Simulated assay, not measured.
Amino acid sequence: MGRDVSRERSARAVLLIGGFLVAVVISELLLRIFGLGYGGVHMVSSDVLHHVHPPDYRFVSYHRSREHGGHVVYYDEAGRRAHPDQSAVDLTGYEGAVAVMGDSFVEALQVAHEDSFVGRLQTAANGHTPVQNYGTSSYGPALYLLQWRHQIRQQRPSYIFLMLFGNDVRNDAEMTAIAQVDSCGEIVAVSGAEQTWFARVARSTYLARLVRKVQLQLVWAWEHWGEETGESFLDFLEENPDITDLTDGYLQQLVRETREVGTQLVLLAVPSKEDTLRRAARTTRRAFHDKVRVWAEQHRVPFVDLATPFLVAAEAGARLFFPRDIHFTEEGHRVVADVLLSAYPKVFTGE
């Protein structure tokens, strides 16, 4: 009698486990069939650049607050943000080729590729010249210098447009602390932490990514329950540091190396969200954007002003930043693209 009960329990356990596994497999297949591979931002560890995008990888973007997302994000064979239907383009041999560098503001996961400012520049170029997006979240001048050396220099683009942001200074300090240097003290690599087996499986499994999405959105909804909607400056800290000797050194080295091969480096800086939306903040402090402008003038590097066009657009009622997220909306990206097309028409359109 006892054996029969034990066998019955074992059979039930096998059926339950088997049923669960079948449900998992079916769910995974359905998610893949419908292309519902959700993700926020995906990185893999790098021995040189700390973290990079996985090549030929796509996912459906989302944000925990649900204020943006739902579009497909694609990294091409070279790990660059690109149109989901686009193949990687080698810039070598193209006169006037453009590389755009920066952090998450350039990567622009918050909007569809064609609505990002790099996507708009590609559309405007219309085959006149290739424009490639090298934007990578959490990069700063230390990693930009290494990215130039290992991903971009060999392609010799005619122009590099580099967008800086206030947290770049902190990122430089953090990356330098774990960097490998040569006998002269020159940075040569920043090795990223090795990813666990679980992290690799979670990134490649659509069902795990869906569970993670639901978890983050539920936690965010609970933490912000009852809050009024509207513009917020609290979800993301807008850093406004001075340019340190460390960051200054990386930028100067990047300027020297790009000039050596005939590549024109052009600097931009993200306008302050607070300064753009709050009149009082405009007269009480010097924004990071202005500090970059002064640095560019001192080192004879072309600089494109974005703060003034953003103020004008904001006064006209344009919604340039997401209410909670600190990044550009589609309108913000449109302003950036329009400014660059106006400042460098021959580069992008040949006119």
Rank of each mutant, 00 (worst) to 15 (best):
H299S: 10
T123C: 00
V219S: 12
Y38T: 02
S65N: 11
H42Y: 09
R259T: 09
L277T: 14
R293F: 02
R259E: 13
S46Y: 06
G79A: 04
T258W: 09
T308L: 06
A313I: 04
G192P: 05
D305V: 06
F165M: 13
W148G: 13
A221F: 12
W222Y: 11
A314Q: 13
L234G: 11
V181Y: 15
K213D: 03
D76A: 10
A179P: 12
H51G: 09
N133S: 03
Q264S: 08
A142F: 00
V24E: 02
V312F: 01
F34E: 14
Y62N: 04
L36M: 12
R279W: 01
H327C: 02
P84D: 05
V98H: 10
L21D: 04
N171W: 01
Q154E: 15
A221Y: 11
Y139T: 11
R212W: 02
S104M: 01
D245P: 04
R200I: 05
A97R: 01
R9N: 09
R156C: 05
A13C: 10
E186S: 13
L91A: 04
M43F: 15
G166I: 00
R66C: 08
G192C: 00
L218H: 11
G79D: 06
D172T: 02
E274W: 11
R282D: 15
V22L: 11
F20N: 09
W225C: 12
E107D: 10
W225H: 15
E107C: 01
E274D: 15
R120Y: 01
A307R: 15
V41I: 13
Q132Y: 09
A202C: 06
A108R: 08
R334L: 03
H128S: 08
L216C: 07
I26H: 09
F161V: 13
D47P: 09
Q154T: 12
S204G: 15
Q195I: 05
F310C: 03
Y144T: 13
L145A: 14
T308Y: 03
I152F: 07
E107Q: 14
V118W: 01
G230V: 04
E114W: 06
G127D: 01
P130C: 05
D76C: 09
V261E: 13
G332F: 03
T247N: 07
Q122K: 12
Y344I: 06
R293D: 06
S232D: 12
T123F: 05
S45Y: 05
D275Y: 09
D172P: 06
Y57D: 10
I33G: 02
Q264I: 04
S27H: 05
V312S: 12
R282S: 15
E238Q: 11
G39N: 05
